[in-house]
Design a protein around this nucleic acid. Structure first.
Lengths: 212, 212
DNA sequence: GTCTATATATTGATAGAC
DNA sequence: GTCTATCAATATATAGAC
């Protein structure tokens, strides 16, 4: 009997197999998008036959749904950690650093998300309008309070967050372009440190209150 | 006899038909990516039958190639206009404005490009490493000279350009997310003006030399 | 649990009537 | 130029042997 559609695996073996499949599927979905990916490619990437793969997941959609769920959870972690009780400047600075580390360490997850957004978020609109919006509203409130208290310069907290997301995820989603433009000499692993330095200056310069 | 594969149309009628097809194809490719798009969807979007569509374009790939060519050309225009002889601050400010206007007025083209990047630029690597890199190298040189002359603050010109691309295109590529987070009240057309104001402050604040 | 074989639908592209 | 009909390849998913 195949593993029930929506249930999590019972045994260790089943969980391990599913993890292998999810890992292979992430390789494919993150590049091809949902429609562009095929079960054949995923099975190949996971190193097993197509029927065998379909023994562990009922359908292509189910695999994609699982990946998206897990990813969205991971994706919101850095923002959740933004601490209203902390010092604004270091808090925002580490938020940027964490987001950039996510782009460096989880580029496939970033691309999976980007693909979903480009398609109009058919499988994720609910999360965007629900959980994500609630979290962003809350954190925007935190940032606004910091501004009201004169701890950082006044600006639009929503567009500030959009800009942080855009710039950091760019290094995962547009990696080919970044590498192509930087060329052999500067396109290596050091590009993330260069980016970190640049983004820190870009965002912190304007936020630091003029202590005149 | 079908329109020759690589030739441009001879008659006005042919060109008009091809334009209708390209417009419909842009709707589909920009959302689904190359693999995810089907000729059926494109024909439907263009309001004609599949065989009729294939009378004007030899294959799905040829349509996609045309769209990508036209788009890349359009896409680089704002950067080409960055004038070494102009005033640095206004020059960069208008560059940002033009890029944001592109995201507002040509969101489908932006998404087509994003899809291509996510897939590793299989149809565009040559342009990235050739024409794009050459243009960016040249303009980065312009910006570096402005810095050497003390007209703007010192920073990394490449990552500055990446950040401008990322933030502006974000409003096209991640439009669903932006709308979802801003909600009904702030997610209307005004979001582009808010973004323009925010991005101008973000980028210009750090660049303006401290005229102490 | 894993395989081969296969059913069924969709897809890119063509043939040939009009 | 446009259509209906259709081919060959590929896709998702299942049947049933082992």
């Amino acid at each position: 009997m195949p593993v029930p559609a929506k249930a999590r695996p019972r045994t260790r073996i089943q969980r391990e197999k599913q993890d292998v499949i999810l890992d292979g599927a992430l390789n494919v979905f993150s590049v091809q998008g949902f429609r562009g990916a095929t079960i054949d490619q995923i099975a190949e990437a996971a190193g097993m036959s197509k029927p065998n793969l379909l023994y562990y997941f009922a359908s292509k959609e189910e695999i994609h749904r699982r990946l998206l769920e897990d990813m969205l959870d991971l994706w919101l972690d850095p923002l959740r950690e933004l601490d209203a009780e902390g010092d604004p400047i270091p808090e925002i600075r580490s938020y940027i650093r964490r987001k950039l580390e996510m782009a460096r360490d989880f580029p496939r997850e970033s691309r999976l998300f980007a693909n979903e957004m480009l398609q109009g978020a058919p499988h994720a609109v609910d999360v965007l309008e629900g959980e994500l919006k609630a979290l962003v509203d809350q954190k925007a409130g935190v940032i606004e309070r910091w501004m009201a208290d004169g701890k950082i310069t006044r600006t639009d907290p929503y567009h500030l967050l959009f800009s942080i997301w855009a710039t950091t995820q760019h290094y995962a989603d547009f990696d080919v372009q970044v590498r192509a433009v930087l060329g052999k000499d500067r396109g290596g692993e050091g590009r993330f440190e260069d980016a970190a330095r640049f983004l820190e200056n870009l965002f912190m310069d304007g936020l630091r209150p003029k202590t005149s």
